[in-house]
Simulated scan of single mutants.
Amino acid sequence: MRLFDPIGASLAATLCALCLAAGAHAEAADEEPARGIDVSHYQGRIRWDLMPAGSLHFAFIKATGGTHRVDPEFDNNWHGAREVGITRGAYHFFYAGDDPIAQAEHFARTVISLRPDDLPPVIDVEITDGATPEALVDGVLAWLRTVENRLGRRPIVYTYHAFANQYLVDPRLSGYPLWIAAYDVRQPVLPAAWDDRGWHFWQHTHNGSFSGVNTPVDLNVFNGSLGQLQQFIRDYAGGACPPESPSCPP
């Protein structure tokens, strides 16, 4: 099923459920949440030019992993998304067994710079490489701080509930926006570290489909409308989110 087919009968029901889950940031009950995908070389060569206009608001794109891996499709996806007007963001897959500063520098060298309308950078944390929770958190925080210093944006943390509740319990992590993976639920359950902060992005399936992508693809929503997504980007463009902004965590 094409979950976000713009003329499909399933779209209204799907968006209705997601609007309810994203209601904390929505300005009106009938306002749709901003929709997105996240991609890597696992999706093969994506035809960004085939995506229906207005059907996709943002895309997270894998850039790097570890200290030297670069996703083979990063350049195509990074430039292709922008060429068709899709808001883009870059993410890094974190290996706790590799030096976190070297990983952050590798990511920053690959992305080079972010435009004012790009999403904040992302660290994908879902494996431990045998590290203790304390060592994992220390490494993640070192990556976050280094990337924020190099690229001028406070990064986003991507993870999932069970992993985060076991390994990412340090309250210092709650100062970073959360992108949560949670499938087959009406709304995600927050990890303890973010319990009072809320989520900004939700990856709600790993088995979606979209024009221009020939394989299953992850589908996401932002916790708010397209206008609120744009405000979120503006708030984080200078690094730490201004505490008075409505899109910031409390």
Score class of each variant (00 low, 15 high):
Phe107Trp: 04
Val157Met: 04
Ser113Trp: 04
Ala96Lys: 03
Asp129Ala: 12
Tyr158Thr: 07
Asp118Ala: 08
Tyr158Asp: 01
Tyr158Phe: 13
Pro100Val: 01
Thr159Asp: 09
Asn76Trp: 15
Leu114Ala: 01
Val111Pro: 02
Gln166Leu: 11
Asn165Asp: 15
Ile127Gln: 14
Ala102Tyr: 14
Val111Leu: 06
Ala164Leu: 02
His79Tyr: 15
Pro155Val: 01
Val84Ser: 08
Pro133Asp: 09
Asp138Leu: 12
Arg115Ala: 15
Pro133Arg: 09
Thr110His: 07
Thr132Gln: 03
Gly139Tyr: 05
Ala162Lys: 01
Val125Gln: 06
Ala135Pro: 06
Leu144Ser: 13
Tyr91Glu: 05
Gly139Asn: 10
Phe163Met: 07
Leu168Cys: 10
Glu126Asp: 14
His106Asn: 10
Thr110Arg: 07
Leu136Lys: 05
Val169Ala: 10
Gly85Tyr: 02
Pro133Ser: 13
Gly80Lys: 01
Leu136Pro: 03
Glu134Ala: 15
Tyr167Asn: 13
Ala131Asn: 09
Leu141Phe: 12
Tyr91Leu: 07
Ala142Arg: 15
Phe107Pro: 03
His106Ile: 08
Leu168Arg: 01
Leu141Trp: 11
Pro116Ala: 15
Leu168Thr: 00
Trp78Cys: 00
Ala131Leu: 09
Gly85His: 06
Asp138Trp: 11
Val147Ala: 09
Arg153Ser: 05
Gly152Asp: 10
Gln166Ile: 00
Arg88Val: 06
Pro116Lys: 11
Pro100Phe: 02
Pro155Gln: 06
Thr159Gly: 08
Ala96Thr: 00
Gly130Asn: 08
Asp124Ile: 07
Leu114Gln: 01
Glu126Tyr: 11
Asp124Glu: 10
Asp124Lys: 12
Pro133Ala: 12
Pro116Cys: 10
Gly130Cys: 04
Ala104His: 14
Thr87Tyr: 01
Leu136Cys: 05
Gly85Ser: 03
Tyr160Met: 08
Leu136Phe: 05
Gly97Asn: 12
Ala90Tyr: 04
Val140Leu: 12
Trp78Ile: 00
Tyr167Met: 13
Leu119Cys: 09
Leu136Ala: 05
Ala96Met: 06
Asp118Met: 07
Leu168His: 04
Leu141Val: 07
Gly89Lys: 00
Phe93Leu: 07
Asp117Trp: 06
Arg82Leu: 05
Ile156Gln: 12
Pro116Asn: 13
Asn165Cys: 04
His79Asp: 13
Gly152Thr: 06
Pro116Arg: 12
Gly152Ser: 07
Val137Gln: 05
Tyr91Gly: 08
Gly152Gln: 10
Gly152Tyr: 10
Tyr167Glu: 12
Val111Glu: 03
Thr159His: 05
Ala102Glu: 13
Ala162Pro: 00
Gln103His: 12
Tyr95Arg: 14
Ile156Pro: 13
Asp138Tyr: 11
Pro120Arg: 05
Tyr167Gln: 12
Tyr158Ser: 08
Asp138Gly: 11
Val147Gln: 05
Leu151Ala: 14
Val84Tyr: 03
Arg154Pro: 11
Ala104Trp: 12
Thr87Cys: 03
Val137Ile: 08
His92Phe: 08
Leu144His: 09
Ala102Asn: 11
Phe107Gln: 03
Gly89Thr: 03
Ile112Arg: 15
Trp78Glu: 01
Val169Ser: 10
Thr132Ile: 03
Val137Trp: 03
Val140Ile: 02
Tyr160Asn: 13
Leu119Met: 09
Ile112Gln: 15
His106Leu: 07
Gly85Lys: 04
Asp118Ile: 05
Gly97Gln: 11
Glu83Leu: 11
Phe107Thr: 04
His161Lys: 07
Leu168Tyr: 04
Tyr91His: 08
Gly89Glu: 02
Asp98Ile: 00
